[in-house]
Design a protein around this nucleic acid. Structure first.
Lengths: 206, 206
DNA sequence: GGAATATGCGAGTGTTCGCTCACGTTTACT
DNA sequence: AGTAAACGTGAGCGAACACTCGCATATTCC
């Protein structure tokens, strides 16, 4: 039985050169993942591309998964930040305007690094990795719910928790599919309009 | 360089006992995948659980992936059939009734074998495997679009192709999340109602 | 019965790959 | 200058695992 191993960094880099080493390792891993997919990302290959020895790699990461996990965390945080910033910015705006802005932001978030995003979601064989994406979704739902509650009287759905879940899941799935698998959808100027309609018509009364 | 290998069966089973062998292998693989996840599914383990030797396994499957691929195909076909049957059954019904029925069917389809479904979508490291699921989605979109076109005058969206894409992607994502990750959502009697509302309000005029 | 064919077996092979360890080099500090 | 700590190296170990091959058994068909 292979027990779950710690994913925390084994040693903190203190000097400048060791921070460079860690940076090189992360950049190399991202590069390999986007170019060759998960299969190509062996520890020896990562070290080679990073211009570093395997030994150095294992001074700062306890195992291979920790490297990927660090990348995922950074990627998730970036994406979430794009979403969060836009939502906060339009918190005062009306439903239609706010929704459209947030949908656009979600598309932009997916465009940050689509190839890496794809590898994370489609090729990583470890269940633990996906949890990090689910957590982002839960955080997004919380933000959305707060927005909905502030305008409760304009909203048709009684259960705003459920509404937030449906909206976040929907927009995530639709933008993901469009950016990752059907880029041609994005050329359609109606795309954002229709996704916005999907959300707004669900939320608005009447 | 490891070239892509053929996934077609190496030899067709002719006698009864060999058909049993193939069946045992497939059942064993499904069982291991649901119980232990992708990591546990080694060829030796599959053979052992199936009560068969590795050699026999390789008489009917050219490689490990072919076994998993066969399972995925069967699983996808089952799920799609649940969806298709219901859609055909309610093709004559009104928008609200039909939508509700199809959403329920999608939930049922996901309940066929949630654990296996999860492993397929979350743990398989090969990109090729996911294509099979995307293809089902495309087939579903086609069916939905046909329904929408038959009632074009009741529909608000001008682009029914885009509408079908949005609906299928949405319902798939929402039912998937509910069945796989948030089973408690299904206890909420409003769940189906709200998902139906999401679709119907998007489609209907006014 | 017996030849031909289909099926079954499983120890072993070759390779891949995560990871260690013993040793060299650089930096920080006194 | 001298010492300790931090950093870097890469050959190679050990285990896992997909897959083969030579041979045994069962079935079919004449």
């Amino acid at each position: 039985m292979v027990a779950a191993r710690k994913l925390a960094a084994r040693k903190e880099p203190r000097q400048e050169r060791s921070k460079d080493t860690v940076g090189s390792i992360l950049r190399a891993t991202a590069r390999i993942l986007t170019r060759d997919g998960y299969e190509g990302a062996t520890t020896n290959r990562i070290a080679e591309v990073a211009g570093v020895s395997v030994g150095s790699l294992y001074q700062y990461f306890p195992n291979k998964d920790a490297i990927v996990a660090a990348l995922i965390d950074a990627h998730c945080e970036e994406m979430f930040e794009v979403f969060r910033r836009e939502l906060v910015a339009v918190a005062g705006a009306g439903l239609e305007v706010a929704t459209r802005a947030v949908v656009s932001a979600q598309i932009e978030a997916h465009k940050l690094n689509p190839r890496l995003h794809r590898v994370f979601l489609e090729q990583l064989p470890k269940v633990g990795m996906l949890k990090r994406f689910h957590e982002i979704n839960r955080r997004s739902e919380l933000l959305v719910r707060t927005y909905l509650e502030a305008r409760r009287d304009e909203m048709r759905p009684a259960n705003l928790d459920l509404a937030a879940f449906l909206l976040v899941t929907t927009v995530e799935a639709v933008t993901h599919a469009a950016v990752i698998d059907q880029t041609e959808r994005l050329d359609d100027p109606d795309f954002i309009t229709e996704v916005t309609a999907l959300c707004v018509r669900y939320l608005a009364k009447g």
